[in-house]
Computed example of a mutant assay.
Amino acid sequence: MTNRPQTIQIFLPTGSPTGVKEAELTNRLLKAMYFPRTAMEDAAKRDIAKYTGVYFLFGTDNNGENKVYIGEGEDCWERIKSHHRNKDFWTSCVIIATKNDIYTKTEAKFLEHVCLKEAKEVGRYITTNDTGSKKPSIPETRIYDLEDNFETLKTLLGILGFPLFRNGAQKETESREYFYCKGKEAKAEAILTDEGIWVLKDSIANLEETKTAGSWVIGMRQKLKDSGVLIQEENILKFAKKVLFKSPSGAAATVLGRRASGWIEWKDKNGKTLDELKRK
């Protein structure tokens, strides 16, 4: 979907900016409710909790990797209460339904199927669903409506801080900015986005850290090794998949195995640094 200006309305039922939030695009059918697991009691009081729709349970694993469980329900709250008893990993939940509760069970299952399929393809979060979601039979005319709803759903999740379906390393506009970081054996390629800097799959990092790398560099690289992102191949480390870094310096330090200023180390194809292009 092409990016365009939109108006979002966010309501804080308890007045707390870290508690329950209800979000909607003013001219769209869907509505979302976010709540931390610690605010189950407050969330249960909201009408949308009991609507027919889809829900997302977000958390992390022991390596700090983002995880999500995607489900649906005629009464979402009944399903979420069950997960509260039986699933440990999640810390936050988002429920998405129509503002006037008009989804049928079949329509909710269709959205669950689309969400799970797309989440697996994008790969930003580890999906914890034990099985896939079978695509239900639904009239063709309704499919187009629900696919349009899915675009709104993606926007609402992103607004609430969960860019589950956003692949920052894919083409979002016609111009992508590529940058390169090199040193010793290292040779990495990255794309700069409004989220941070994506180091691309098959980029190469130095195998060893320098003596002055510091614990944060060593720890950051070890975490990526433990999660299978950085794989050793002979005398180098290779990125097994694309990785988003919030700062250019974090990305450069990971690639080079030392303390580094990413604003200087990342350069475009003409040799101009990020500092020259973005800060001056």
Rank of each mutant, 00 (worst) to 15 (best):
T193M: 04
A119W: 08
D61G: 05
D130C: 09
A186I: 02
Y125S: 02
F58E: 04
I143D: 05
E185K: 12
E189C: 05
I102L: 06
N62I: 13
K99I: 14
L156T: 09
E177Y: 10
D130N: 15
T193F: 02
H113A: 10
E72L: 03
K99L: 11
T131I: 11
I138C: 09
L57V: 12
K182H: 14
L111Q: 09
F58A: 02
L192V: 12
G168M: 02
C115G: 03
T141G: 11
T98W: 02
Y103I: 02
T60W: 00
L156K: 04
G183W: 08
D88H: 07
C181R: 02
V94L: 13
N63M: 11
K182W: 03
K87C: 08
G64P: 15
L156D: 06
F89L: 08
G53H: 10
K117V: 07
N66I: 00
H113K: 03
A188G: 08
K99D: 11
I96P: 00
E74W: 06
F162H: 09
E107K: 04
G71C: 04
S175L: 05
I96W: 00
K187M: 09
S137R: 14
G183N: 10
L160F: 07
H113C: 06
P139L: 08
K109W: 03
Y125V: 04
K120F: 10
N66C: 05
E189M: 06
E140F: 11
S137Q: 15
V122S: 03
G73L: 09
F110W: 14
P136A: 10
K120C: 12
V122T: 02
Y103D: 06
A186F: 07
H113Y: 13
C181Y: 07
G132R: 11
G123T: 08
I96A: 05
E185L: 10
Y103F: 15
I80N: 00
I96L: 04
C115M: 09
G158I: 01
V114W: 02
L156F: 09
T155R: 05
E118D: 15
T141N: 14
L57C: 10
T52G: 14
T98V: 05
L160T: 10
K117D: 13
F162Y: 14
T128N: 00
K99S: 15
K120T: 13
D75I: 12
A108K: 03
A186D: 02
K99H: 14
F110L: 15
T106D: 13
K87E: 14
I80G: 01
A169L: 04
T106S: 14
E172G: 12
T98L: 03
V122C: 00
N86A: 08
V122N: 01
E74P: 00
Y55A: 09
K154H: 07
N149P: 01
V122R: 00
I191Y: 01
R79Y: 07
T106G: 06
I159E: 15
W90S: 00
G123W: 08
G73S: 07
T104D: 06
K154D: 04
E151F: 05
I70R: 01
C93N: 12
